[in-house]
């Protein structure tokens, strides 16, 4: 039995994939543009020893771009680890215990997801400024010791918006979790910590990893909140690229973006592999 596929289906497939991936293809192609202005494609660049990868070489000579890359990775890795820890613990607490204000805790978890990012960004900035001013004046700190915006504040703000996503993914996993296996472990002589380490954690691991992956990508490409909470020495890639756009967009930006796409793709492949092996 073979049915003719509807031409509309084919068309919509082409359109969806076109909208999704053509911008990326264009972005990558323009990374090889010979025109500095990067408005029209004027042929493949071939300069210096790097040849067609001229713009890629330029990125590696650009200390600002490299610094922004390192910052982005530092922030993404730290905030992923922290938010995965906090998010998983929150999921366990919410799934298994009843306590005062539980309903409030559950509802407030969704706020960072639904609230416009710019509102959260301004909120966090105001909070940091108030706290920092209070601390700095109360303890009369010397200028070098004063608290201010930087890597730390960006990491804290990224943790704040990543935790709900981790909690939600881990909770879906916990939902189908049979508590009897934990009782079985206790029955066989495992104390609470051993039971968690040997039984509970391995079983919810796919959920934890999915949450961590989500937190990592959210942190990696966040612009709005980072825009408010970054400070000297904590410029991330999205912020750096945005800064470049205000001047001229050289193919260097495309080259930088292309490399980031490759990094994210690699991370995705690895996480998929790990998740499949755990599950």
């Amino acid at each position: 039995m073979s049915r003719r596929r509807s031409p509309w289906l084919t068309l919509s497939t082409i359109l969806v994939y076109g909208f999704l991936y053509l911008p990326i293809v264009v972005l990558v192609v323009f990374a090889f543009n010979s025109s500095r202005q990067n408005v029209v494609f004027e042929g493949i660049v071939n300069r210096d020893a790097c040849g067609p990868f001229y713009w890629f070489c330029r990125v590696f000579q650009n200390q600002d771009a490299l610094d922004a890359s390192v910052n982005t990775l530092k922030i993404a890795l730290t905030s992923t680890v922290l938010s995965t820890l906090i998010g998983t613990m929150a999921a366990l607490a919410l799934q298994r215990h009843t306590f005062k204000l539980k309903l409030f805790a559950e509802a407030s978890l969704y706020i960072p997801i639904v609230i416009p990012e710019i509102v959260m960004g301004i909120g966090i900035l105001v909070l940091f400024n108030t706290v920092f001013r209070f601390v700095n004046t109360t303890f009369d700190l010397a200028p070098a010791q004063r608290l201010g915006l930087g890597l730390g504040t960006v990491i804290i703000s990224h943790v704040a918006f990543s935790v709900p996503f981790v909690t939600l993914t881990v909770r879906t996993r916990l939902h189908s979790f049979d508590r009897a296996v934990e009782e079985a472990a206790a029955d066989l002589g495992a104390n609470a910590w051993t039971t968690f380490r040997r039984i509970t954690l391995p079983l919810i691991m796919p959920g934890v990893l999915a949450g961590a992956m989500l937190a990592f990508t959210l942190s990696l490409d966040d612009f709005i909140i980072t825009f408010f909470t970054n400070g000297p020495g904590s410029t991330t890639l999205p912020i750096y690229v945005y800064g470049l756009l205000r001047r001229t967009v050289t193919p260097e930006v495309n080259a930088l973006s292309t490399m980031w796409i490759l990094v994210v793709l690699a991370a995705l492949v690895v996480s998929n592999r790990v998740q499949r092996r755990v599950a």
Binding site: V181, E183, A186, D187, L203
Partner: peptide, 20 residues
């Protein structure tokens, strides 16, 4: 006395084998 210190073992209705 917690379960892990009692000299008894249980066979559960759902078996509760460790799936991983």
């Amino acid at each position: 006395t917690p379960p892990y210190q009692r000299p008894v073992n249980t066979v559960f209705q759902s078996y509760a084998l460790f799936p991983h």
